[in-house]
Amino acid sequence: MKFAGVVCFLASVVAASIAHAADPSYVGSWKFTSALVAPWADPQHKPDSAEQARLMGKMVLVKAKEILGPRPFACAKPQYKLTDYGADMIFQGAFDEMQHSSKKADPKALAASLGFTGDKIKTLETGCEIDFHFVDDATIEAGLNDYVYTLKKQ
């Protein structure tokens, strides 16, 4: 009987360890720290800065089954999917579209100008309006209305 109790206890410890290890790295609090006009924005029209001002300093809480935060970053029922994209596919393929318009627009150079390195960029697809692109484990970027927003993990 003692042996069964010990086995049961060890099994629960192992299960808890596995569950903790499986926690996605994107879960947690993320703070808007900066924004800049997106490379794809029309240089003839300055984007409205009201949204940028509204978001700066605010938090986005990414949870296992919801995203809390200011609109449009909040999401009641996200369908998470982690994907490795090439530079041409981040920001819903904006850099690829730019390259189709002008061969001088190099997706890798555009991504590098925003801090991305390497050939693959980890992206969290949310199934909602916004996807998050990882610059590193503590920094994500998201595109919205001709701005690129940087969020830092808290």
Rank of each mutant, 00 (worst) to 15 (best):
P107T: 01
P47L: 04
P107C: 08
K63M: 08
K77D: 08
D42E: 03
L61Y: 10
D119V: 05
A38K: 05
T150N: 06
T126A: 13
S29K: 15
V62R: 04
G86K: 04
A19H: 07
I67W: 06
L10D: 10
N145H: 05
D84H: 14
A76K: 06
A138E: 01
T126R: 13
K63N: 10
L151V: 02
P47G: 04
A105V: 06
Y85V: 03
T150W: 02
V6Q: 10
L144Y: 04
A16H: 08
K2I: 15
E97M: 11
G143N: 07
A94F: 07
I67K: 00
K104L: 12
F3H: 15
G57M: 13
F3M: 14
V37P: 02
V27Q: 13
G69E: 00
E141C: 01
P24C: 14
K108Q: 12
V14A: 14
Q99K: 11
D106H: 09
K46S: 09
M89H: 01
L124K: 09
A74R: 02
V6M: 13
R54G: 12
V135P: 00
L124G: 09
P39Y: 05
A21T: 09
G69P: 04
L110N: 05
P24Y: 13
K65D: 14
V13A: 08
S34I: 07
C128Q: 11
K31V: 15
S101E: 11
D106L: 12
K58D: 15
P107I: 04
G69R: 06
H45G: 06
D88Y: 06
V27M: 15
A112D: 04
D42P: 05
Q44A: 12
G115A: 08
P78M: 12
G127I: 14
T33K: 02
N145S: 04
P78T: 08
G143E: 00
E129W: 14
F91G: 01
F95L: 07
K2C: 13
E97A: 13
S29H: 14
A21N: 12
I67D: 03
Q99F: 09
D137A: 00
A87K: 00
